[in-house]
Amino acid sequence: MTTHPTGTREDWLKARLDLLKAEKELTRRSDEMAQRRQALPWVKVDKAYRFETEDGPATLADLFRGRSQLLVYHYMFGPDYTAGCATCSTIADGFNGFAVHLAHHGVMLSAVSRAPLAKIQAYKKRMGWTFPWASSSGGDFNFDFNVSFTEAQQRDGGIEYNYQREPAWTAQGIGDTMTKRGEGPVAENADMTGTDVATYTRERPGMSAFVREDGVVYHTYSAFARGLDGLWGMYQWLDRAPLGRNESGTWWRRHDEYERQA
């Protein structure tokens, strides 16, 4: 027998209407947050960033592919990874479907990682993805947008991620809240990329938005960590499922690994 509260259809409808009021308020708040994001001041991008793409060398302006806006997903795929981050992969699984709609609305979506282009292309083929994915290998782009860090920064406490400074690396990991003393989701994800926790966490997830106006590129917005929850399509569905996210450890896998796991 279920341990969850049960009731009549009338009980359910009363509770559902109460919840609807809260949901509508959340929707209004979400609309307000979107407007505040769009009202942030634009910052001119002066540095000449270079990328490698399937079409050859590219500038940041080239990544727009003729559109006026560019959304970059900072995909965790470091030079030493043997495969892309499994968590980033679950987010990226949704990109193929809506990238075409964004492109027809003047918005280009592209992933960017520090892994060499050959590694990216091989992994992209494995996953069956078609969205643009550029390599920033050898450049400053990831470092300047606070999603990649050096070993020295990690060791000396010089990492500023998600608008706050992290404690220096210790034997237990980068802060107990992040690594749970070297165990838990971060360590499991590191293992799935063929790296250790230190190497894995020198890359971080994030997204950045850019706009191009009169030939000038501006940075308009960036988000990291839990700020990316809204981009994680499966979470939006799980939040509406009867048992919610119902998480125990790193339950997700790359989409081609579930059958292998079973």
Score class of each variant (00 low, 15 high):
Arg245Pro: 02
Phe131Lys: 04
Leu13Lys: 12
Leu238Lys: 11
Gln164Leu: 14
Phe143Lys: 06
Ala168Ser: 11
Ala187Glu: 10
Asp191Thr: 10
Ile91Asp: 05
Asn146Ser: 12
Tyr163Cys: 05
Ile174Glu: 12
Ala171Glu: 14
Glu52Ala: 15
Gly230Asn: 10
Gly182Thr: 07
Val45Pro: 03
Asp140Ile: 04
Thr90Leu: 13
Arg50Ser: 13
Lys21Ala: 15
His104Leu: 11
Arg204Val: 09
Pro167Tyr: 00
Thr179Val: 02
Leu17Ser: 12
Tyr81Gln: 07
Gly158Pro: 03
Ile159Lys: 07
Val112Gly: 02
Gly106His: 05
Thr27Cys: 11
Ala34Glu: 14
Ser135Tyr: 01
Gly7Arg: 10
Asn142Thr: 06
Glu32Thr: 10
Ser136Gln: 07
Ala118Asn: 09
Glu32Asp: 13
Ala223Asp: 10
Ala111Gly: 05
Leu71Asp: 08
Tyr200Glu: 07
Met76Thr: 05
Asp62Ser: 14
His4Leu: 15
Phe51Ser: 07
Arg212Val: 13
Tyr161Leu: 04
Gly206Leu: 01
Ser110Tyr: 00
Arg37Asp: 13
Trp42His: 11
Arg37Gly: 06
Phe98Ala: 04
Glu54Asn: 09
Val107Cys: 03
Ala262Leu: 13
Asp55Glu: 12
Asp62Trp: 02
Gly56Tyr: 00
Gly66Met: 07
His74Pro: 03
Asp239Gln: 12
Tyr235Cys: 04
Ala190Arg: 07
Tyr221Gln: 08
Leu231Tyr: 12
Pro167Ile: 09
Gly244Val: 07
Phe210Leu: 02
Ser113Lys: 06
Leu228Cys: 06
Asp176His: 14
Ala168Gln: 08
Ile120Lys: 04
Ala225Arg: 10
Pro167Glu: 13
Ser222Cys: 03
Leu13His: 09
His104Cys: 02
Asp191Gln: 13
Asp140Val: 04
Ala187Ser: 13
Tyr218Met: 01
